[in-house]
Design a protein around this nucleic acid. Structure first.
Lengths: 157, 157
DNA sequence: ATAAATAATTTATCTAGTAAACAGTATTGT
DNA sequence: ACAATACTGTTTACTAGATAAATTATTTAT
């Protein structure tokens, strides 16, 4: 146990990338995503499926295009998510009277129930993640994130 | 153009998910990542490759395991990245005198050059993204992200 | 009537990241 | 000295998430 310590992995806390916004955002997002998975995905829903279900519970009758626009994802990616939600009895596609191209998305009673149960767990898991912050910091953190998004999401719809 | 407006996509700005930390972090990260790609990837480097190159430029001689630990990714995922950097003449694997398992990662002169050129572009692109913020807000934003990471990344390593 | 636009879908492709198993090497305990 | 254990880099296979192009059915505009 004498010599082999030639590459001791300095672990300086202040590499250049530690100062970059993108790197910090990515790591922070990964923390939340992983925690979400541990806490919530047991309850059937992936992060994406949860966000979709939330939208259609809140606003019954949105079309898939509406949801895709709101979430900033492609319509094509939504098909599988809706298939999944529908297969689990959480949501339904229904014909829209005025437009036979569109499908109105409706959450079932079961979907609403799972959503509120899951939302409670999500709130709890986020509260735990934000525990190291003071209430003022929590406000600031979310306010800054929202301001950042607002400044850059305007250009697209 | 009279009747078909049955699903007007309400676009209320305040869905429940808009209040969630995870959702806001994800959208914010996507903004930065997409912008990074537009600005930087033209210059050969993906976000991941850039972060790896940065580390080994700053600390020549890190092993792959060191880098994986620092970046919080799997060693297996690093292999392709190093292969790529090596193939482009930006980095090299070298034998470590004391340990024949490890490979010391060294950035080439070309790698150092590309790194500093790219870092300049990254700084510029981040400065532009943070332009909507006041200097105080910028400080706060990064400080909060770092505090958040520090509070949750301690357990692993 | 015809052209252009839209909604949902299918297919293929890409990136990122994870997990498991492997061979070679090193360290530790006895 | 030897056996058990652990670590390094690697391969392979797999998953998730996202994107892009092409397709069909339908609607709107001219």
């Amino acid at each position: 146990m004498a010599k082999a310590n030639l590459h001791p992995a300095p672990i300086e806390e202040d590499s250049d990338i530690e100062r970059l916004l993108g790197y910090n955002l990515k790591r922070a997002y990964m923390i939340v995503r992983d925690d979400f998975r541990r806490q919530v995905e047991q309850s059937i829903l992936s992060p994406r499926a949860f966000s979709v279900l939330t939208l259609i519970v809140e606003t019954q009758g949105l079309t898939q295009s509406d949801v895709a626009r709101k979430l900033g994802i492609e319509r094509s990616g939504l098909v599988a998510i809706i298939d999944d939600l529908e297969g689990k009895g959480l949501a339904q596609r229904r014909a829209v009277p005025g437009d036979r191209r569109s499908q109105a998305l409706m959450a079932t009673a079961q979907g609403c129930a799972l959503h509120s149960e899951t939302m409670a767990r999500v709130d709890a898991h986020e509260k735990a993640l934000l525990a190291p912050f003071t209430p003022a910091e929590r406000e600031q953190f979310l306010a800054l994130l929202r301001k950042f998004r607002a400044a850059h999401e305007e250009e697209d719809t």
